[in-house]
Write a protein that binds this DNA or RNA. Structure first.
Length: 822
DNA sequence: TACATACAC
DNA sequence: TATGGTGTATGTA
């Protein structure tokens, strides 16, 4: 760890000056600006379901961002909740960005209300600037004058009233009163100048506050004002207003202007001043040699303040010494709690406990923690890299009817497809996210052989994933309160070009083929119904056709469970065929040439497809795109992607395998597809076991994909497999306390485990119990509101599955830890 | 690659 | 009555 620390130290760069600008209570401030009646009244922005933010009055009642509005109302019955108006916030944000760009054209906007700037170059340039270039008219709005000056008797009355109302009701750990007073208070222009004049004493207060901060960390401030800046300093470090109106009260503010100095501190003040002049909103700023520190600093004097940290090691170490780890961006409540259990609450603790960190966390996390403890962060502002995923999700009141769930899923795919296509994106991985009525969140994903963007193909994949989930709880309904669809694994533009090129090659090679003429025709003349949409790629067409066939023959999916509604995917394929004047009333249609085939059996049909592909496709492309196990494993529950002997890359599963399955199912087994794959690993890779009859049925390897099938909520023990009606586990041993009980169902077992584990993750680490907890081979968890964990249900194991704690280290790590202790 | 978790805003 | 939506990073198997 010391070597790592030394390594980090060597990488420390103190030569950059980073500013983090953060608008104060942004949404609420914008609303207050436009509706001054909320200046002194508790107000939140959002809905009864969720608040995005609240003003500082409401915060004194404990009303916070990310709090359900109805709970906020209980805390503060007088709270007014205003709806979000993103257009307005965007517009204001744009105004702010225009200012920021003048100081760093490559500034990074992190969200609507915060941004990082690297002003290193600006500071150099600024040295040669004439004074007038650093001088700005104050206009008619002077926030500091305003905000302090409008601290009227009325406001004080309101505040006292609020204070009295809250007294004794709750612990108020929010900003002190004077901070509440510092909230932006834009008001009508009429009283501005007057307020300004009245605000002199407040500036003295500001000066005092500023001096206090200097006294707190004197070594952190070496950019004390130059002689030129001294007039400004007289009014305090937090106040940039060297206004004529102060030197000559009779002039008032109409002609006021302010000149800023050369230092980073002055630049930040200037930025904040200009933001305020332009938007009538206040911002806070942090100045430091890296992004991590700048972010922490901007929070230190919030609202409407700034804090700068000297770019030297001693100052940074001093600064980090008392800094609570929770203040660092990236350390959330979970990490805070976990580290607290190790006795780590400050960044200094983090450094002192570095040896333990190395044992308990991955190298990535350890290095991250160590860097934090040293105050080392990124110094190069990277522009937002390319988007990696796009998603849409909705929360709703409970939905349990499958048809409604599918309908919603399609709607989400529709919305997502539209957004994806607007950005000309195509992705290969589709993730379904669901949250049940108990707030348990699950994600289920599948990667396709080629990138997609159409609603039809998104839905085809998402629908299959949803179907698995619905079937996993059957006959109980799947009761959801949230559903989302995400597309990721985007192919980059170069790859898209390559893909397009390969299709061109394909079209050229296949000109003589009827199928290719169709594809060409489709490429040149888009279907009117899809005008404006991205035409289907070749792979999309193949996929669409395959799905069509799958739906038609129903050999891939369950033969005994609920029906999957027809997707529009199918209709699009039909549409394509209709363009050719064909119908799909009978027979199998080749997904490559789209000709109806009268092959006997799937094997022969596959042979045709191989032949078709061989004609038009080079070996490497064929292999690359069609042999991936992911081709079908996730898309269709327990479906083969290639036979085990495996050299052929059939579009459809091996005829032999399917024949076996079909024959098996026709013989009376109806449960294969819905349940069989959950135990596939217990037979051979290429076989599966029918739950109903216990016969072994030959399958290909990916039938054993554990992600493909799920168990119902009730645990099914291996012993009970012989009796498909048996759904209870006779006895299981808790991996934590080793007690053995009759568990009624998985939920009861999980509840026990949670209780066991909640006695303290860390305490477990001091016991050899931990090695039991964390034994290898245990898989992930589901979540309940980010806290509770439960056993994974998608894998049947012979022994009771063992619970793994969040962040629990591997067995090797634990062994290392204990060895070190010894 | 699949999935869960943590985190930010 | 009622507890969001979007995106990224990371750990684990």
């Amino acid at each position: 760890m010391d070597e790592m620390a030394a390594d980090l130290e060597r990488s420390r760069d103190l030569n950059r000056t980073i500013v983090h600008v953060d608008m104060d209570a942004f949404f609420a401030a914008v609303e207050t600006r436009d509706r001054p009646e909320f200046t002194h009244r508790p107000m939140g922005v959002g809905s009864l379901s969720m608040l995005s933010t609240s003003n500082y009055v409401a915060r004194r009642f404990g009303v916070r961002a990310a709090m359900p509005g109805f709970i906020a109302k209980r805390l503060c019955p007088e709270l007014t909740i205003l709806p979000l108006n993103f257009k307005k916030y965007e517009a204001v944000s744009k105004e702010v960005c225009e200012i920021l760009a003048e100081y760093d054209p490559r500034f990074v906007r992190m969200s609507l209300d915060e941004a990082y700037l690297d002003i290193t170059q600006h500071l150099k340039d600024r040295e040669t600037w004439p004074k007038d270039r650093r001088t700005f008219a104050s206009g008619s709005f002077l926030s500091r004058g305003c905000e302090k000056g409008t601290e009227s008797a009325h406001l004080k009355v309101v505040e006292v009233k609020l204070e009295q109302e809250r007294e004794g009701e709750m612990h108020d750990d929010t900003e002190p009163v004077q901070n509440y007073m510092k909230q932006p208070m834009p008001t009508a222009k009429g009283n501005v100048e007057e307020s300004c004049m009245e605000s002199n004493s407040e500036h003295i207060t500001n000066e005092h506050e500023s001096q206090v901060s200097l006294n707190c960390s004197p070594e952190l401030f070496d950019d004390l004002p130059t002689q030129e800046e001294s007039s400004c300093a007289e009014l305090g470090h937090d106040s940039p207003l060297t206004l004529d109106c102060f030197s000559d009260p009779h002039q008032k503010a109409a002609t006021a202007s302010v000149t800023f100095g050369l230092s980073a501190h002055e630049v930040a003040k200037e930025i904040r001043f200009r933001i305020e002049q332009k938007t009538r909103l206040t911002a806070s700023a942090g100045i430091a040699p890296n992004m991590l520190l700048a972010k922490v600093c901007s929070d230190r004097k919030k609202p409407n303040g700034q804090f700068d940290l000297l770019p030297n090691k001693a100052a940074i170490h001093q600064f980090m010494k008392e800094l609570p780890i929770r203040k660092v961006s990236g350390i959330g409540k979970v990490t805070e709690k976990l580290l607290k259990a190790l006795g780590i609450t400050t960044c200094q603790d983090l450094f002192e406990q570095r040896a333990i960190l190395a044992m308990l966390f991955s190298e990535t996390s350890t290095r991250h923690f160590l860097a934090i403890s040293l105050g080392i962060g990124a110094t190069r502002l990277e522009r937002n890299s390319e988007r990696k995923s796009m998603s849409t999700e909705r929360t709703f009141s409970e939905i349990r009817k499958p048809e409604e769930l599918y309908s919603l899923c399609q709607k989400l795919c529709h919305d997502l497809a539209r957004e994806v296509q607007e950005e000309s994106l195509q992705g290969r991985t589709i993730t379904l996210k669901i949250k049940n009525i108990n707030f348990e969140v699950k994600t289920r994903a599948v990667s396709l052989p080629s990138a997609v963007s159409s609603e039809e193909l998104l839905f085809a994949a998402a629908r299959d994933l949803l179907k698995i989930e619905i079937e996993s709880v059957h006959p109980q309904p799947l009761r959801l309160r949230l559903m989302g669809v995400r597309l990721s694994s985007f192919v980059d533009r170069m790859d898209q070009k390559k893909q397009q090129k390969s299709i061109d090659v394909f079209l050229n090679i296949g000109n003589k083929e009827e199928c290719c003429s169709f594809l060409q025709q489709e490429t040149r003349v888009p279907c009117p119904q899809r005008a404006g949409q991205t035409p289907l790629s070749f792979f999309q067409r193949v996929e669409a056709a395959r799905k069509n066939e799958a739906a038609q023959h129903d050999v891939f999916t369950s033969t005994c469970t609920g029906q999957v509604p027809d997707g529009s995917l199918q209709s699009s394929t039909v549409q394509a065929k209709n363009n050719r004047g064909e119908t799909k009333e009978s027979g199998l249609v080749c997904p490559v040439c789209f000709q109806k085939q009268n092959c006997k059996g799937l094997y022969n049909f596959n042979m045709h497809i191989d032949h078709c592909l061989g004609l038009i496709y080079s070996e490497d492309v064929h292999s690359k795109h069609l042999s991936s196990p992911a081709c079908y494993s996730g898309l269709i529950n327990s479906v083969c992607c290639s036979n085990q002997s495996g050299n052929q890359n059939h579009i459809l599963p091996s005829g032999k395998d399917l024949s076996t399955l079909e024959a098996h199912q026709e013989e009376g087994c109806c449960t294969f597809a819905s349940q069989g794959n959950s135990t596939n690993k217990e037979v051979s890779e290429s076989d599966t076991c029918c739950h109903s009859c216990q016969q072994t049925v030959s399958l290909c390897s990916c039938a054993g994909d554990e992600s493909a099938g799920l168990l119902p909520d009730t645990i099914v023990s291996p012993e009970s497999l012989a009796d498909p009606t048996a759904c209870e586990v006779p006895s299981m041993t808790c991996p934590v306390c080793h007690c053995s009980q009759l568990w009624v169902d998985l939920q009861a077992f999980n509840t026990h485990l949670d209780v066991c584990l909640n006695q303290g993750i860390i305490s477990k680490l001091t016991s050899h119990e931990c090695t039991d907890m964390c034994s290898p081979g245990v898989s992930g968890t589901s979540t309940k509101a980010g806290e509770k964990t439960s056993l994974r249900r998608n894998k049947l194991v012979e022994k009771p599955p063992m619970k793994k704690a969040k962040y629990s280290p591997s067995k090797n790590t634990i062994d290392k830890f204990f060895n070190a202790q010894v």
